[in-house]
Amino acid sequence: MTDAELFAKLQEVDARVVQLPNCRPLAVEVPVGFLLAFMGKLKSRPDLRFIQLLDHLAMDWPEKNEFELVYQLYSIEHDLLLAVHTRISRESPYALTMSRLWPIAQYQEREVFDLFGILYEGHPDLRRLFLEDDWVGFPLRKDYKDYFMLEMPE
């Protein structure tokens, strides 16, 4: 299936998807409010069947005042890769958990919470993953300051 065919199918699922330019694999952006319903359809539709969540990550865009969440999906039956992007505000970084659809999302979301401080509503066990429980700040944010960190000299 080519990217154009896949995108046409995704528009059948939800007309509000937007294709992101110059991405590989095909990346679409969905408003955060419809994300959970959209993902549920992606997983259950027989011609898509994205049953594996490969990866979940976040990106920090301080100048746009946004966090960008990325979900990498894989359909084993149809051998399709898809990246679903969504944007949330930096002031109130709330997103819905995907752990009801894919159990692994629980742990990938814990990683993102640990490093970016994104709060997942409905998450069964939202805790720090890599850092200690009393760690202050979220290190992968672009404005993270740490007196311990050494900057590379020029």
């Binding site: 850092l131 290190p139 740490d146 311990f148 960190m149 590379m152």
Partner: peptide, 10 residues
């Protein structure tokens, strides 16, 4: 892992 790492003990 000396530079730009927030966890490594140097």
């Amino acid at each position: 892992f000396t530079y730009n790492s927030y966890t490594t003990v140097r």
